[in-house]
Amino acid sequence: MSPIVKNVAVVLVIPITMFGLYIILHGHLTPGGGFPGGAIMASLVVLFFVAFGKEWAKKINKGILFFGESFGLALFGLLAFLGLGTSFFHNFLANSDSLFGMSIPFGANSGFLWSGGIIPLMNIAVGLEVFAALSIIAVVMFLENGKVMFSEKENNVGGKK
């Protein structure tokens, strides 16, 4: 792509990341949450692929992305199991006056960031997982047949000649 597109893509890193993090972190206060926030952040990867092309996508460390995806899902499940003293997916942090345990009154109010119990933590976990999973899907499907996925030294069996 042209230098204009490349420069604009670089400039857009900060607003897109900020907006995605805002959507994820305020998932328990405003419409949004982990799924749309992670999709917004994954759109940054797609934008960079459009701007910088295949050469840039080959440099992405897919191991880190796969680790993030697995870690997000594992964190989500772990948070669900932590409430097992009462029931599966019990919100054990809500209204406990500890971290994320601030209680809020009934009715319309602006809310607090440190409320919601495990809901913000689960939003972060899901956001991480969605971001990593969509990035992996986009990158692997963009690179032709994902041939450069793991290492370029090995022979490609079953691929193109």
Partner: peptide
Amino acid sequence: VQTGSNNIVAAIVFDYRGLDTLGEASVLF
């Protein structure tokens, strides 16, 4: 009041119906 979350949708998706969301995340994985 129970979940401390102003967004009722988030309260339902991540707390009351958390098992559905676990399945959704598993599908994406």
